[in-house]
């Protein structure tokens, strides 16, 4: 009897130990580090972090990036997922091509877009040969903030829309087609069917995709660094700078705690706002 009861715990034990050692311990250490000051515990590191010149830019840039990239890629992913649902032949091929960016590392994706967009990049060359520009143009500097921001948003969207799409494609497959059929019999146009039937029934998947994507977008780092360097500070890149260039791990830890707090808050908001009561599920 004892063995029967203990078995489930024994089975989850390895995962538990793994999480505890590799996740919980560093987490607690990081939080402790963030609140540690010379004399004890306090908010000193956070004050120093907030007084730094780049802090405001990092906060604003991070929220701008999340605020623009996440909605755009949600829309793109929804469109792509619905289009896939209407394909008959070649569906798997299209899905496969669309998910290629998932296989690239963040940094590689950033470097690809850097190669396209820098002053000696492909875009410059093409525009020059077409006679649209007279010589190499720099878009990715602090003098062209809008262009720099646009480039980072595009690269971020290109890199990570596929993961949102995969979640939504899986979600769409869970919605039986009979509901769309019933709606069409009762006079709904394809747009109305999407709005009144597909979208509400897809809400749980949209919620998952949003949480996943928003948390990752708040942690955006390699793509931003590859394209923007220090011209576009975001929270995580600042943490990186404090850790490795300023040799101040406690400030880096404070940044990490801020990012974690924001991600948690965003998750809670999504969980509440996009809640689907059990009674309304498909």
């Amino acid at each position: 009897m004892m063995r029967g009861r203990a078995l489930p715990y024994l089975l989850v034990a390895p995962a538990f130990v793994f999480l505890a050692v590799l996740f919980c311990v560093p987490l607690v250490q990081t939080i402790a580090l963030a609140f540690q000051t010379g004399t004890g515990f306090g908010l000193g590191n956070f004050v120093q972090m907030a007084e730094d010149l780049n802090f405001n830019d990092a906060v604003v840039n991070t929220f701008r990036l999340v605020g623009v990239a996440v909605p755009l890629q949600m829309l793109a992913a929804l469109g792509m997922a619905v289009m896939l649902g209407h394909l008959r032949a070649g569906r798997d091929l299209v899905l496969w091509i669309w998910t290629i960016p998932l296989g690239l590392s963040d940094l590689a994706a950033g470097l690809v877009w850097l190669a396209l967009l820098n002053d000696q990049g492909y875009l410059n060359t093409v525009l020059f040969h077409l006679g649209i520009i007279n010589g190499p143009e720099s878009w990715l500097t602090y003098e062209t903030p809008m262009a720099l921001f646009a480039a980072i948003v595009i690269a971020e969207i290109w890199r990570s829309t596929a993961i949102v799409m995969v979640v939504l494609v899986a979600g769409l497959q869970l919605v039986p087609k009979e509901y769309a059929e019933a709606a069409s019999v009762f006079g709904a146009s394809p747009w109305k069917i999407f709005l009144r039937v597909t979208l509400p029934l897809l809400k749980p998947s949209i919620q998952s995709a949003l949480i996943l994507r928003t948390v990752l977008a708040f942690e955006a780092f390699a793509v931003v660094l590859a394209i923007g360097g220090r011209n576009f500070p975001v929270l995580v890149s600042e943490a990186y700078t404090w850790q490795h260039f300023n040799q101040a791990p406690a400030i880096a830890a404070a940044y990490a705690v801020v990012v974690m707090g924001i991600s948690l808050a965003a998750t809670v908001v999504y969980l509440r706002v996009l809640r689907t009561p059990a009674a309304q599920r498909a």
Partner: peptide, 20 residues
């Protein structure tokens, strides 16, 4: 013609009542 242009109503064998 698509279903919505046919001017009819239907009761489905599996109901297809909207869960939401």
């Amino acid at each position: 013609l698509p279903p919505r242009a046919r001017g009819l109503a239907m009761v489905f064998q599996n109901y297809a009542v909207f869960p939401h």
